[in-house]
Write a protein that binds this DNA or RNA. Sequence first.
DNA 1: ACAGCGTTTGCAAGCGCTTGCAGCATTGGG
DNA 2: CCCAATGCTGCAAGCGCTTGCAAACGCTGT
Lengths: 359, 359
Amino acid sequence: MTLDDVAQHAGVHAATVSRAISRPEMVNAGTLDLVRSAIDELGYVPNVAARQLAGGRTSRLAIIVPDVANPFFGELVQAAQRRASDDDELVLLADTDQRPAREIDAVRSFAGDVDGIVVCASVAPVASLRDAAGSTPLVSVNRRVRTVPSVLLDQAAVIDLGVDHLRSLGHEQIAFVRGPAAYWSTEVRTRRAEALGVPTLAAPAPTYEGGREAFEAVRDSGVTGVLAFNDLLAFGIMAAADEAGVSIPAELSVVGSDDVAIAEMVRPALTTVSGRMSDLGTTAVDVLLRYVVHGEVPRSSDIELAPELVVRASTATVRPRGAFAGRARVRDGIRSLPGEVVRPSRTTSKRGAPAGSEE
Amino acid sequence: MTLDDVAQHAGVHAATVSRAISRPEMVNAGTLDLVRSAIDELGYVPNVAARQLAGGRTSRLAIIVPDVANPFFGELVQAAQRRASDDDELVLLADTDQRPAREIDAVRSFAGDVDGIVVCASVAPVASLRDAAGSTPLVSVNRRVRTVPSVLLDQAAVIDLGVDHLRSLGHEQIAFVRGPAAYWSTEVRTRRAEALGVPTLAAPAPTYEGGREAFEAVRDSGVTGVLAFNDLLAFGIMAAADEAGVSIPAELSVVGSDDVAIAEMVRPALTTVSGRMSDLGTTAVDVLLRYVVHGEVPRSSDIELAPELVVRASTATVRPRGAFAGRARVRDGIRSLPGEVVRPSRTTSKRGAPAGSEE
DNA sequence: ACAGCGTTTGCAAGCGCTTGCAGCATTGGG
DNA sequence: CCCAATGCTGCAAGCGCTTGCAAACGCTGT
C-alpha cells in the first residue's frame, strides 16, 4: 500500500496524493476529495520511514524521563502522550534511570528520528544535550536551561507553600528533606529553604525506601513538621514514623510534594503541594508542537506553573505542650478530602514568569 | 554524516560499512576494525528511517497499554523498556485509555515502523488486531490469544491464592470485586471465583475511586473478607471503610492484586497477590526480541507466570464472635514487611504452562 | 601452472515519500 | 486576439541504507 496505489486509484499522480496529505492547500478542492476518499477506501497509511527520509515530519515525539515507574513521571508521560495523540503524534519513551550518560544516549538516538524531544528533570550537562540533539527541537521540563525552552514548576513556591502552611499551624522547628543533588529542582528548593531559615536534611533517594531511612534523621533533628522533596519520600517517612510509634499528624506533621494520585489513598491522607504533572506534560508537548507544526518560536524564555497546596490529614497544629492537637481539618473546620487548595501568595504567572537566573 | 562518509574515511565502500554494522560476520576482521574505528571516530549514527526504508530492522519496539499512569502498567512499561534498551531497542509507547478503537489505531500506526509490538491487556477484537499488525510480530500480555504468542500471569492462581488465604484465616463469607468486563483477566478470574463458590461484585472502574464506590456493595454483602481485582481498587475499599468507621483488618480483611509499589506504603499495608509486572514486561520483550533478532519462533503456545501471595497487614483471622482478632502477622507470628511470600499450591510452571483453552 | 572454490568486497537497484521545476490550462488585461 | 499571470498537476531527483549479484582475491589440489 503506497502512494502510488492511492494515486492510481484516484487517477492522479503520486505527487498529488502526497500534497493532498501534507499540504492540502496546494491541491484543487475536487482533486482533494477524490484523493481523500481513495485514501480511506484503501485504508492507506503513509510510511513514516519514507516520509522522514524524504525530509518530511515524523509524527513522532520523544519523551525522556528518569523513572517511568515513579508516579510523578507516569502522570507526566500520560498527559504528554494524550496531548501528542491529539495532534496525531506518536510518543517514544526513554527511561534514563537518572544517569546522565543514558540521557545523552537517548537524546542522540532520538535526534533526527523525531519531530521533537521533551527531556524531564534532566541531569546531563547542557552542552552535551544540545549537541546530541543537533537541530532537533528540545524542551526541558523541570530544569531551567537558558538556551532551551523550559517548562517548569515554580520550585521556590513549593517551599513557600509548605513552609507557610507548617508555620501557620504553629510549627517552629521544621525541616526540608532534600531530593537528589543532581536535580535542578532540588537545588532551587534547597536554596529557598535555606533562605527561609529552614534546615535541610539529605535522603538517600527520593523514594519510599529513602523516606524510611531518612526518618531517623528527621526524628533526631527534633522537628515537629517536615517538608519532603516528593510524596514517595513523605510516604516513607510516614511509614517509618508509624513503625516507630510516632503518630502523624499529632506528633509530626508531614507535607509532601507532587500530589501524586496515591497521596489521597494513604492514611493519613497526605497534605502536599501539587506538582502539576499533567500540566507540565501537556504544556511541554504543546510548546514543541507549536514550534514544529506552526514554526512558532517559544515566546518568552520559559513557562512557569504555580504549585498549589492541598491540605489533607498529615498536618496538624503543633502539639500545645503535652496535649494532642487536632488534625488540620478539624482545626480549620475545612473539608479535608479532596483537599483544600491554597495558591502561592507571591503571584506567579503562568507564562513568562519573572525568570530567575538559574541554569 | 552518512554511510558514505564513513566509507570514505575507512577507505572502503559504503556497502561494506553497512555490512560491518548489521552483519559483521560477513566482513573481514581487519576491515571490520577499520570501519569500526572510523565509525566512532566520526561519531556516526545510522539513520533509522533510511535503514528501515531499505528493509532493515528498526531498533524500535512498541508497547501499548490501557493506562500508563496506573502503576501496574507503569512498572510493566519500565521493565519492558529496560529489557529493550539492553538490546539497544527504543520503545514507543501508546496509551489507549482502554478503548478498543485507540488500541487498533495504535497497532496500525506502529505496524511496519517497529520491529515488534507488545500489547498489554488488550481489549480489541483479535482479528482486527492481527490485521492491523499486518506482518509485524506481536505479543500479547495478560490476554490469552490463540494465534499470538502470549505472556500471562496465571489468573486463576491469583484467585486461588487469595481465597485460600482468606479461608485459612477463617473467613467463610468472602467476595471478589471484579475488574472491567473487557479484560481477559477479569473473565478468567470471575470464572474461577465462581467455581470456588465465591460471589463476585462489580466495581465501576478498577481504580481508587471505583473501590470507594464499591465499598457500599461490599458492606451490604456482609462479607468478612474481600478480594479486589487490583490494588488500586483495594485502596479505595480500604479508604471508604476507614471513613465508614469499619476497621481493617479487624472487621474486614482485604486482599489486593498486583502488589504495586504503593501496596506496602499504605496503612495498613496491603496483603496482595503479586502481579509480576516486571517479569511480564521483561519476558514479553524477550520473546519479541528473540523472535525478531534470532528468528526464534516462540516455542510453546504461551508463557504463564505464577503469582505469589504477599501477606501484609490488611488481612486477619475472622473476628471470633464479638472479640477482636489480631492481624495476620500477629496470629501467624510472621514478619509482615516486606511480606511473607506464598506460592500457589497448584503447580504452575513458568514456561509452556498447562495452557488452558481460553482465548 | 591452472581450474575450482570459498571469502570479501564493490556495484547498483530500489524502499516510499517530498519537493523544486516545468508543463499545461484557464483567465484577465492590453 | 495575444501575452502574462495564476493555479494545478506531473516529472524526476534524491533522502541514506540494505542486499542480490557479480567481480576480485587467495588458496588448494592436481
